[in-house]
Design a protein around this nucleic acid. Sequence first.
DNA 1: TTGTACGCGTTATCAT
DNA 2: ATGATAACGCGTACAA
Lengths: 332, 332
Amino acid sequence: MSTISDVAARAGVSTATVSRALNGKSTVDPQLAARVRAAAAELGYRPNGPARNLRRQETVVLTLIISDVANPFFTAMARGVEDVAHAAGYSVVLCNSDDDPAKERAYVDIAVQERMAGILVSPTGRGDSAGVLAAQGAPVVAVDRPLPGTPGDTVLVDGALAARQAAEHLVQQGYSRIGCITGPSGVPTADERLAGYRAGLRAARLPAAADLVRRCEFRAQGAYRAALDLVNRDDPPDALLIGNNAMAIGVLEALAELGIRPGREIGLIAFDDAPWAALLDPPLSVVSQPAYDMGTAAAQLLLERIGGASTAARTVTLSAHLIPRASSDPHA
Amino acid sequence: MSTISDVAARAGVSTATVSRALNGKSTVDPQLAARVRAAAAELGYRPNGPARNLRRQETVVLTLIISDVANPFFTAMARGVEDVAHAAGYSVVLCNSDDDPAKERAYVDIAVQERMAGILVSPTGRGDSAGVLAAQGAPVVAVDRPLPGTPGDTVLVDGALAARQAAEHLVQQGYSRIGCITGPSGVPTADERLAGYRAGLRAARLPAAADLVRRCEFRAQGAYRAALDLVNRDDPPDALLIGNNAMAIGVLEALAELGIRPGREIGLIAFDDAPWAALLDPPLSVVSQPAYDMGTAAAQLLLERIGGASTAARTVTLSAHLIPRASSDPHA
DNA sequence: TTGTACGCGTTATCAT
DNA sequence: ATGATAACGCGTACAA
């Protein structure tokens, strides 16, 4: 692969002139510049990124670490990040932590080592990534979940409020034995949804039914088992608040197997809207989170932080809203 | 951010010893090594990636460029790539080209400039990324779609065969006016699915109905309009072969709006299985592509190519298989 | 306007 | 076993 000196030799100029001509920085004789560009094109010259980054001490690529690429919520967020980043001349690379603290940590290490311009991370909540980040003082913003320990820029949604509203909606619809399937203990989004659910029951003067709560990973499989488990009880729930998109699929599979129809036989509300949610029969009620906007907000925060503008940590909290559909209507 | 010389100073040794101790390469006095590690830890030292890559002339990160992060097909593929890559000590970063040749090109440029160890790309089919890649001689493998022009390593699925089988299945089920909504002309996967569809009709001695074919981007919106357009004809199709996952959503939305029930009123088969396809009412018949396996195969090819093993370009072709469900059953 | 020369942080070679 | 030093490819201050 040809270097800047190859180009210089071919164009009969110094490497400094090549650099200037190609970066359009200082003023260069138009004719020389043309010769340089021609030489570069003929050689298929591409500047060596590592060398350039080393010299410039900066990059124009952002790292976005998410916990599940297959989750539409995170991909929508990624779109938001990308749109803002691209407009500002940055590129974005995605890393998939798989909700595994070790993988998250590995990607954080890479981002730090490669001296990425900035890092957006939707933390698993466990693990020590936060420490690494804090120690390096790299520009970071946490999305969806706060970074434990360090008070950095953060973009959240008020999941507790949304969960509470969802629970109250189920009560209003006439359900009275409301269960909840949410993520692992310690994961902030999982915890806050559970708290909101409980607050909703309390507000409706319904007894807190600890035995109607199940916790598992934010995946279909665990939710599938949890749903079977709950529904096969002697006193099964008559409604379910579901922690996310992927879990909803597991629950729906379980109910389909048992021939239980959502809405009439069991009320259902799941976190995260998805393109297919409205296509189900009955359509699935959801708590829609502003994923795209979370992405744009996070990217903006990060860009400002990179710019070195403010120094105080900021937290942006967006709100989710309930989209009631027939799966939470007992008369549907 | 501290450098290797900071660590060296703190440990009272030379930078060379620090490098050796931290990389465990050459043999170092255990006591000294411990002192070095301690110093590094205290300083929160992280090796400078660009400097290291510059010196080593190599990276351990792979770039995977896909056209749609929100498409489960591509994310499943990404999982396959990641699993194989991680096992071999490589990391993977995802880039979202959005099916936009310019974005694809931009990410290819980045990957090449950053001297990524290897590149996996699912090309838009348009644009000149292939030329750049070929010129640089970077390790590349194309997934899902071939890289136009250059005969490099490629992982494909036999979409023509699968489309033909799908069309024939629809015929067997009793449908006779079968339409097709597929991707843009020039996109290989779109073209081959159309070709297979036509072959299926021919094999069944059904007239090729050019006016029942619609082409648009591989997205929901275009497919939504195409479906409305087709169904509102005087002589509408009685079945539809749909180009992919996202398009299926658009078609289903259109049909739901018009109150047309899949299966009984219009046969439906879509490319790409998705977790929600079986949950629909009626469940959606799909052509399931081995996305995960495509990812692992591609990653293996790439790793071998990076290793410098073979020199001849290889093409791996996997096969898709039809999963008939009720949406292609007129009696359901 | 153009060229010379140094340094970015690391690893590898060569002495010691 | 350890240290001094060159080199990776680039951008830029300084000199011409």
